[in-house]
Structures are given as C-alpha cells and as structure tokens.
Amino acid sequence: MTSVGRSRTRAVETLSLDATGTRNALSAALVGDLADALAGCARDDAVRAVVLTHTGTTFCAGADLRDPPRPEALVALLRQIAELPKPVVARVTGHVRAGGLGLLAACDIAVAAHTATFAFTEVRIGVAPAVISLPVLPRTDPRAVARYCLTGERFDAAEAARIGLVTVAAPGGDGADDVDDVLAPVLEGLRRSSPQGLAETKRLLTARVLEAFDREADALTALSARLFSSAQAREGMTAFLERRDPSWVV
C-alpha cells in the first residue's frame, strides 16, 4: 500500500503524504513512494503542475527514526523536486519538522496555514540539517536560519514566510480553506502557462539550488551518515523515542 495519495484536477496532480501513523515521517518507504509518484508526473504530458500536501495534522515530522531513508535517497528526492520540469507547489495545513523543511524548500512555491508551525529539530537529537541544507540555504535568510537551525526553536507561518522558507502564510481563519483561497490564483496561473515556458523558467529559478547539489551533495551525504551513526545521535534518538531529555540537556 502506497504512502502517497494521488488525485488530479484540471491538469494539476495532487500528491498527498499519507502515513499519519508516523506523522508523515520520511521513512524509506515514503521517500520511495514519493519519488515514484514524482517520476510519473514528470513523464505525463497531461500534468501541468504538482501540489505536494498531506493528510493529518502534520505535513512531515522529519526523518522516521525507526525506518530512516538512506541519505543518498533523500538527496535524490530533494533534487528530483527541484529538477522536475513542472512546478511543485507545497500546500501546508499542519506542522513541519526537520527533513520536512527540506521538502518545502525544494518546492517552487509553498503556502502554509497560519496555524502551521516549523522547526529545525536536528540539533535536539545530536545531528545537523546536513542534506536539507542543500535547498534550504539558497532560499532563506542567513541570519534567521542560523538562529533556528542552532536552537531548534519553533516558529510560525508568518515567520516562515518572512525568512523565505515558504512563499505565503495564509491569513487566519479556517486553515485549509484559507490556504486553498491563496492557492487558487497560483494554480490558475500555472494552468494558463505553457509547459515549455514553465520548464525553462523553473530551470532559471532553481539554478542556485542545483549548484549547491552539484557542489556539496556528496560531502553532506557523508556528514549525515556519520552523524546518524554517532553515539550522541543514538542517545538523542533514544531519548526522543522514550520521551525524555537527552543526557546533554543542562
């Protein structure tokens, strides 16, 4: 059974992360299912754009600590989103943590409900946002992202928009309805745009992101693997799963 739902409305394919039992955490299975779904969208001439969204109250909780994807697989997924010859639009009505922020940053446009919250929680478990830094750093304000990556603090949708992590924070109100109101003219604009125009414009806009992948992906993949196998990461992940503070908390 796939962990990614699919539907289509007027040439816009919606891919929904659908593993609510793990808060849509990035497991090896979910990463593989999402990669397969995106590949299908890339091949299908009837798809003009892709909306990436979720079921449940969490867009993505980050890496699945019980079944994490290989760092190489996550790098490949993030690059696939950035390189897809069709715009990818994130629709966020829930919370986003750690690796989930990499998905948002890889997307071309992201709209979040005012109730959504965000956090780079990697430092809290003894690792670093290594792989996801590839799309995150070229798109976000350096001072702000330094604060949030170093502290693991939560921030809201308005702040996520201010620092460039999302495009728009929907106004307060009905949550999902507000997000869809913001997305409606965006999707209509994509439907009115030519496939060639979209593909080539996206290529221009993602050039800096893809340069980061070319330059740094191998080193950051190795760093991620080393950190996740470290003693501090084992303590951090164990503490998280046991719902206690890790030993280094003062």
Rank of each mutant, 00 (worst) to 15 (best):
Gly5Thr: 11
Ala11Leu: 10
Leu15Trp: 10
Arg23His: 15
Asn24Val: 04
Ala25Gly: 11
Leu26Asp: 02
Leu26Ser: 04
Ser27Glu: 12
Ala28Ile: 01
Ala29Ser: 09
Ala29Asp: 15
Val31Ile: 10
Val31Thr: 12
Ala37Tyr: 04
Leu38Trp: 12
Leu38Glu: 14
Gly40Val: 13
Gly40Gln: 13
Ala42Asp: 09
Ala49Thr: 05
Ala49Glu: 01
Val51Met: 11
Thr53Arg: 12
His54Ile: 09
Thr58Ser: 03
Phe59Cys: 05
Phe59Val: 02
Gly62Ile: 00
Asp64Gln: 06
Asp67Phe: 05
Asp67Ser: 00
Pro69Thr: 09
Ala73Ser: 15
Val75Glu: 03
Arg79Ala: 14
Gln80Asn: 12
Pro85Trp: 14
Pro87Cys: 10
Pro87Gln: 14
Val88Cys: 10
Ala90Pro: 08
Ala90Arg: 00
Ala90Cys: 11
Arg91Leu: 03
His95Pro: 09
Arg97Ala: 10
Ala98Met: 05
Gly99Cys: 09
Gly99Ile: 08
Gly100Phe: 00
Ala105Phe: 04
Ala106Ile: 07
Ala112Cys: 13
Ala112Gln: 01
Thr115Gly: 08
Ala119His: 00
Ala119Cys: 03
Gly126His: 06
Ala128Asp: 06
Ser133Lys: 05
Leu134Gln: 01
Asp141Ile: 04
Asp141Lys: 02
Asp141Leu: 00
Pro142Cys: 07
Ala146Cys: 09
Ala146Gln: 07
Tyr148Ile: 06
Leu150Tyr: 08
Arg154Asp: 02
Ala157Phe: 05
Ala157Trp: 00
Ala158Gln: 14
Ile163Leu: 13
Ile163Arg: 06
Thr167Ala: 00
Val168Phe: 03
Val168Ala: 03
Pro171Gln: 01
Gly172Phe: 05
Gly172Val: 06
Gly173Leu: 10
Asp174Cys: 12
Gly175Asn: 00
Gly175Phe: 03
Asp177Ile: 00
Asp177Trp: 02
Asp181Met: 04
Leu183Pro: 10
Gly189Ser: 12
Gly189Leu: 05
Gln196Met: 15
Gln196Glu: 15
Glu200Phe: 13
Thr201Pro: 08
Lys202Leu: 15
Arg203Tyr: 06
Ala207Glu: 15
Ala212Asp: 03
Arg215Leu: 12
Arg215Lys: 12
Arg215Tyr: 04
Glu216Thr: 07
Ala217Met: 01
Thr221Gln: 03
Ala225Asn: 07
Arg226Met: 13
Phe228Asn: 10
Ser230Tyr: 12
Ser230Leu: 15
Gly236Trp: 10
Thr238Trp: 14
Arg243Pro: 00
Asp245Thr: 06
Trp248Asp: 11
